[in-house]
Amino acid sequence: MNNFQYIRTTSTKAAIDAVAKDPDARFIAGGTNLLDLMKRGIVSPEKLVDISRLPLNKIEREASGVRIGAMALNSEVAENAFIKEKFPLLAQALQAGASAQLRNMATVGGNILQRTRCHYFYDTSLPCNKREPGTGCGALEGNNHMHAIFGFSEKCIAVHPSDMCVALAALDATVLVSGPTGDRKIAFADFHRLPGDKPHVDTVLEKNELITAVTLPDSPFTKNVHYLKVRERASYAFALVSVAAGLQLENDTIQRACLAMGGVAHKPWRLASAEKALIGKKVTEATFRQAAEIAMQGAKSFEHNAYKLKLAPNAIVQALKTAAGIA
């Protein structure tokens, strides 16, 4: 690691100014992703601006919904009584991520901004358009066991590794952002990008902008929810595929549904058509299977991830069944 400069800040404005002044400066909060990348030489900022003490860690009920400060720790959100009661899908997703220690360090803002775990991105001696634009995508014809089946480009087939973000996508979150020119709100669905021609750009966040909070509208999905994470060991592993599923039921009929997948695309993958297809239907495995088929339209696999074409719809069915209480 190069010996960067370190600045501790106590106000959002000072933090943004500090980063804005220096093209090689980066914010650091939990550090669980950035430090990892720095140790491996994937990024080498000259200056780190410590935002971990900014007063942005509150979890506040709002007139409609909740506002979660960007510095709130993953564990704090997962254990928060109000979140557990009103947004259990989010609590479940957070609980499924990383380890207890990492959840005690990682912040909500940092989790949203975490970078892919693609092997080619991580090894600086291998080609990766995300890490070094123009070098090619090593995974495209390499080992793409973990890679995308939706929304990829020939430049990049990496997936977003977060669990929390899958739930945020399903729950219609909004990301609140502050920058040198003021504040803005970004719908969660628009926050992460698809790789297209610029896979090195993960999100629409500008370099000098800081995530200050995430808001969630009131959610009808308080009871029949399930976050399913399919992985190659029982815990502490990234998802092969994950599904955030929420149902609002009246008797056996689905009134509303929310559905998103992780581990399948460059961003948390909202399954809007499948959600629509569920509305008004009876809770049966056949209903869920049908929705899963709709969700899978347009999916395409590579040499080593064809299993995801079976696993993803199965996972959707399983998550919905568990959410509905018929598993």
Binding site: G31, T32, L35, D36, L48, S75, L102, N104
Partner: peptide
């Protein structure tokens, strides 16, 4: 709080 010292500056 339990945290990882290797990932803490």
């Amino acid at each position: 709080r339990r945290v990882l010292a290797c990932m803490s500056l």
